[in-house]
Design a protein around this nucleic acid. Structure first.
Lengths: 195, 195, 195, 195
DNA sequence: CATGAATGAGTCTTCATTCAT
DNA sequence: CATGAATGAAGACTCATTCAT
């Protein structure tokens, strides 16, 4: 298992730092190696090529992300509560790792279409978590019975994404997690929840 | 005025075609020149550099975009109706120009941070249109008095953006404009409108 | 036509010099460009890639080679005389261009199998010239009627090649063309000619 | 003595297989180590560097080669018979070891000039065997008294080499040893033998 | 003796931009 | 105004060799 090798995560963490501080197009392999404290060639003992570093970065970081969210919302009774927990956690996790926020919201989007398609694959797990919540909300009568799951999901992702990106582009000058309740309110109202 | 020179728009239109068909990173200046039917050097008589082509592209196309939307919503009485018209028109205009849809939703996002910041400047006009609608909605009592304008705007842009991007990534296989009413419903509900 | 562009031949001639003086593996594109007096990028206006330079080099130089030989032997009456002229000319042409001799006999053989296969294609014309002479010799009764054309051709090429390579590896310290009559005598005797 | 260590030959044999099956430029030290069933570092306990493997390979294989030929021709009375035996044996030995044929005729020629010079040193023993035969042939009156030993030797090596290389490049599709008598006939005729 | 993880030097190619005509 | 030939900087990846265990 790759993850057990210490240098694997060491290189991924270095990549996050380098990309966040230099930008996607200025994140040369040699710079990542230097930041990780290894030789250039060592990178290629753990990753097939540069793209593989970026995909792995996304998988590792987003994997953790989705796992944490799934754990936390498991205990919540209602879809509305689950959604609140999800938005809170999502905002909080990115808020706690400014480098990661920059990388996922701004830099990694400059990658080419191939890489973006692979990134989308990684996101499918997250997508299913949201769909699950929406379905539960409809079944329990919290949300409108006419709610279109796909469109609602796109609203949720789109809104969170836009909110976070704005925050990052404003150089994270205000507190993101404290926006979670308001954003949550917008989303559940959109889903037809009567508060 | 640049716009009066026929080759100016000729080059911009060529850029849209070339980027849509080849992708952002395969859209070399020489390819755009060839598509436009001019010499490589001629490009630099009308544009400062390659970035300038892309910014101008966005300005011209989005300028038209916002103008058309402003004209159309001027006649509408309520904020709810204006928002519906806006979503409809936005979806319709991109639906009618598949190349432009690909370029704005997928390809231009691969540009670097600097260019994206300049693109955001261009979007500020659109942003003000939305803010205007939201303000009117609050004043007229259509929307919740507690509505946070900035967050609501981010929801609107984020939701429309995510919806359109999904449609483009699905290779425009379904009819986008027909989704407008449902998306509109999500948005106004989110804004606190009681239907 | 490529050949009309002066820089095309300029680059090929530079490649011969650089390869002869530095060896195949030390003949970087930048070195060839410098020798040719052009920028690195200019190379790629005339050649697809580095391999293309080498193939073109062989085609141009060997093309001239075979043409000159064909012209000269056209006037000869007998196969024996034609063969003599061919050996003489072959030795003389390489003797006059020491750089080319090094490149074709030593350096270009270090190329990979793909390139060597393409080089062999170029040599097929030469091969046909030899086969023609051998056929004529058999028909006119100069050579043995049992002569195996393919083996005889391999003897002729193999012997000339080995002779020239030895001369090159001995740093061209003796006069090669003066060996032509003796080599010719070996070859026609091998073909069954009774002198 | 190196040869007594079992891993020494094990590595050389592995090198022959790896080079024959992957080509000279794809024969990495790690691949040879894997094929030999040892660790990369172990190679360097038996060989100074990669070049040393190749030279040793040539020495071991060609040493055997020349020894076998010397044994076999010792019993022959005439130079003509000795030459026939030599050609036969040379063709037969390579015909029996397809991997070795590929390595010596095609792959090892891609090595750089230095290595090729060292390979030539190894060949000097073989060269002396041929010179011996030619001298004997001249003394016994089998061959022409005017025969130039050096050129004749180059004819013999050149012709055999070209014949074998053609056979290898034609993927060994025909029977090489059966060509020996015809090739022998060409060579002794070239040397002035009257049959 | 044997291992194998780690090292780090070296090069082809692209393409935005210029400028002489 | 228009041309298009020429420029030249910049970076991912391989693999022979070492050395701590």
């Amino acid at each position: 298992m790759k993850k057990n090798k210490p240098k694997y995560m060491q290189i991924i963490d270095a990549a996050v730092v380098v990309i966040a501080e230099n930008g996607y197009h200025q994140a040369q392999v040699s710079k990542i190696a230097k930041q990780a404290g290894v030789a250039d060639g060592t990178i290629y003992l753990y990753f097939k090529n540069k793209e593989d570093i970026l995909i792995s970065l996304f998988q590792e970081k987003m994997g953790t992300f989705v796992e944490k969210i799934q754990q936390k919302i498991a205990g919540k009774e209602s879809a509305v509560e689950k959604l609140l927990m999800m938005v809170k956690l999502h905002f909080q996790l990115l808020s706690e790792d400014h480098h990661l926020a920059i990388v996922t919201q701004l830099e990694l989007r400059q990658s080419n279409k191939d890489l973006r398609l692979k990134i989308n694959d990684v996101l499918k797990n997250y997508l299913q978590v949201v769909d699950q919540i929406l379905l539960e909300g409809k079944e329990k009568g919290e949300f409108s019975p006419e709610l279109d799951i796909r469109l609602a999901r796109q609203m949720i992702f789109g809104t969170m994404d836009e909110t976070i990106t704005s925050w990052v582009m404003n150089e994270q000058r205000y507190d993101l997690p404290s926006l979670a309740p308001s954003v949550h309110q917008l989303l559940i109202s959109g889903c037809g929840y009567k508060s």
